[in-house]
Design a binder for these strands. Structure first.
Length: 313
DNA sequence: AAGCTGAACAACCGCAGGGCA
DNA sequence: ATGCCCTGCGGTTGTTCAGCT
């Protein structure tokens, strides 16, 4: 199918926005509201493309934007969420009121990514490498920050669709059957628990199914058909994980079977195995790397438990 | 003081998904 | 079912600025 270009580039301003442009855009949005970005520049009298206007508004002009340094709490949250979500900056930003995905992405790329990388290198090699962020005053915050937990590749791949109904397909083997049943038990136990959103991928027949992710030679292949329901990742992040059991603190950053997993791409952007609560892995005695996953979930849970306070500020 | 280097961040670009006609 | 539009997302680039030599 054809696609018209986002905007005709001729005669449009590019680069940094001027104060006047900012004012025009802000005034227009105050009057007409957000949206209709494509037509906005023409109506507002801006020589910008709609995309540019949207970006400028969302990343800079919005009144609820929180400017200033990323706090340690925010930094910690970013690291933890990134560990689980990967480069899902918009999702991460959704947990950081006033912060934009662009800001978080930039901050990650310039600070946290390096720190995490350095930390990972240290873990793998046992040697302390000098980081690149040591001298600049801009990086004082980074230097003062505590060691960042190792970036693990346990990333939840998310898609924003809902799931409310679960269908148990015929078990293909014992382990898969067990997992299915546990998943159902857990889903009913925690109500709105919404890992489904993160765990499932949509199949072509309109149903959703767990993607048979192969990790460490273990197939997680089982099918759970889900209709769009009420579950979102945000709900997952808001879920009361305490219902899942007593979670310890301090699990983030623990080094587990990395040696067994180092065939994984360290980049979180690659497809990653889903994470599951403990109940899904009573069979976890097999060495298939799930302890990391569980650790991540626990970490997220404990973190979110303690993190809601400041988030609510 | 001038040039160089790297960090920080704003902005751009291309792609994908959803909605609608 | 198809095609188009709109929007959002993530990766990348460009610019500015501070620190260092």
């Amino acid at each position: 199918m054809g696609r018209s270009p986002c905007c005709a580039k001729e005669g449009l301003n590019r680069g940094a926005w001027t104060a006047l442009e900012d004012k025009i855009l802000t005034d227009y949005i105050k009057v007409h509201g957000e949206g209709r970005w494509r037509n906005l520049p023409k109506k507002a009298g801006l020589k910008r493309c709609g995309k540019s206007c949207r970006l400028r508004w969302l990343n800079y002009l919005r009144p609820d934007i929180k400017r200033g340094n990323i706090t340690r709490d925010e930094e910690d949250l970013i690291v933890r969420l990134h560990r689980l979500l990967g480069n899902r900056w918009s999702l991460i930003a959704g947990r950081l009121p006033g912060r934009t995905d662009n800001e978080i992405k930039n901050y990650w790329n310039t600070n946290l990514g390096k720190k995490v990388q350095a930390h990972t290198t240290t873990i793998f090699t046992g040697t302390k490498k000098k980081t690149t962020t040591t001298t600049s005053t801009k990086n004082i915050r980074a230097v003062e920050s505590p060691p960042i937990p190792k970036l693990e590749s346990r990333v939840v791949r998310t898609k924003a669709f809902r799931c409310s109904k679960v269908f148990l397909g015929p078990p293909q083997n014992k382990m898969e059957q067990h997992t299915d049943n546990d998943a159902m038990a857990l889903a009913s136990k925690v109500g709105n628990f919404s890992t489904q959103k993160a765990l499932v991928s949509e199949s072509y027949d309109g149903q959703s199914s767990f993607t048979p992710e192969k990790e460490n030679g273990i197939s997680l292949d089982f099918t759970v058909n889900l209709n769009p329901g009420e579950l979102f990742l945000s709900e997952l992040l808001n879920s009361d994980f305490s219902q899942l059991g007593d979670f310890d603190d301090g699990l983030v950053g623990e080094v587990s079977n990395d040696e067994n997993n180092n065939n994984n791409d360290s980049s979180p952007s690659s497809d990653q195995p889903p994470f599951f609560p403990d109940e899904l892995f009573e069979w976890k005695g097999s060495d298939c790397g799930q302890s990391d996953v569980i650790s991540d979930l626990r970490s997220l849970a404990s973190f979110l438990d303690c993190g809601e306070n400041w988030l609510a500020e």
